[in-house]
Design a protein around this nucleic acid. Sequence first.
DNA 1: CAAATGGTAATTGTCTGACATATGAAAATT
DNA 2: AATTTTCATATGTCAGACAATTACCATTTG
Lengths: 240, 240
Amino acid sequence: MKIDPKSTADLSAQIATAIRDEIIAGRLIVDARLPSEAELSEQFEVSRPTVREALKRLAAQSLIRTQRGATGGAFVNRLSFPEAYAQQITTSTLLLSMNDVSFETACEARFALERSCADLTAQRCSADHLAAMRAEIHRQSQPGLTDEAFCASDVAFHRALVDGADNPVLSYQLAGAVEAMQPLMNMITFSARDRARIVALHERIASAVEAQNGAAVSDGLTALEQETQTLGRSLFQEKF
Amino acid sequence: MKIDPKSTADLSAQIATAIRDEIIAGRLIVDARLPSEAELSEQFEVSRPTVREALKRLAAQSLIRTQRGATGGAFVNRLSFPEAYAQQITTSTLLLSMNDVSFETACEARFALERSCADLTAQRCSADHLAAMRAEIHRQSQPGLTDEAFCASDVAFHRALVDGADNPVLSYQLAGAVEAMQPLMNMITFSARDRARIVALHERIASAVEAQNGAAVSDGLTALEQETQTLGRSLFQEKF
DNA sequence: CAAATGGTAATTGTCTGACATATGAAAATT
DNA sequence: AATTTTCATATGTCAGACAATTACCATTTG
């Protein structure tokens, strides 16, 4: 592990990259303990604050965790699915909010991706996930729900639909697609009639899942996409 | 912007979270300049190294960039698609390599997701993207190619297929699914016969794209998934 | 003898102060 | 007017110190 002091990049960035490469290449395995900050300082020939900045960079990406005390130190972290979810959602949300992505493009991608779980969910959806979907449908039908609560329930419904595919990798990948759309959906003010149409489509999708009919689930999602696009067009002209 | 000194969490983590929330909430917009490190030290009532560690955490997530000099400082960064790609791929790769995900599960998710671009790519694929796919097919047909080069070309083929949908959000989301599989694919040693079958399926997919037949693209991907699963089963028993 | 107690070393977390370096802008000079 | 110099400001890096936490070990005590 050596770094180039002549590079224009920050030393802490170089050190972070060097350690990250070790982890990705598998030379530092999960739960392995990194050398102490003092030892890293010597190895890289930099001061301890510089090493610490490098370690914080890695900690921000959940690549390492640190522990104080006698047997403490920095350990290679097992990236958990919840952590990966959170990172995925944050990145996706920021990407959409910062890049003049049209509602249409985001919506198209979101539903295209979500349809990829249609067949699997229809085949495998557990009673629990189906019940969760139905519970959200019921919540969405209640009058007097705020727009935020309606949107949150909408996300929960889709989350249950995705999780019904019983494939954690798929759930992880779709988390970004589904949740990152929420801020955009929150901009929509739903009329009672809009909500009724959406709830009806949710019911149609849930029934298709119950009937283990993947094609029908996919069709329901497509119908929901068209409904959402219509609502979006009434709000945004082209970009936002 | 205040922090809780009684919390068990690191001060730098709290400060990073506080600033990140400001960015996500839109109170700090793109290209806005954060207060200088000295000013942040005063505001949060911590020392400059602590502030710096917080800023490095944000820099690691590409949320800010820093610049030295008189008019320098930390600025809110516009998260670019390439940066988001890179983060997505790193996270996905680590998630798969660290969590005993079966080859079958990963493969299933990957192809399920990739099929979501079948219709869009069939409709919209440009001549350039189609040519890129055909170029990779040609490269893959060459004898004497190393396994790594064959896999890299495989990824490039799928990347072109995904990009053909002409939806950057979709490309971003699928980047993780497609590229994160590469380390797993690299573990497979392809026989000449294996390669021939894969190349034939690629050709079948490219032709379906050219014919603007989305269903045929989807079917081709499904056939490729089955082929890949067969190869995977010959390598791994259950977990790896 | 077993268990509670206290000390000790190791390690991260934080602070203070300082100097190096880069950079834009204003001031001085040609 | 154009160029050079100077300067202020900001980040990058360093050294040293102390605080807080924690595991381990020796000691004391019941």
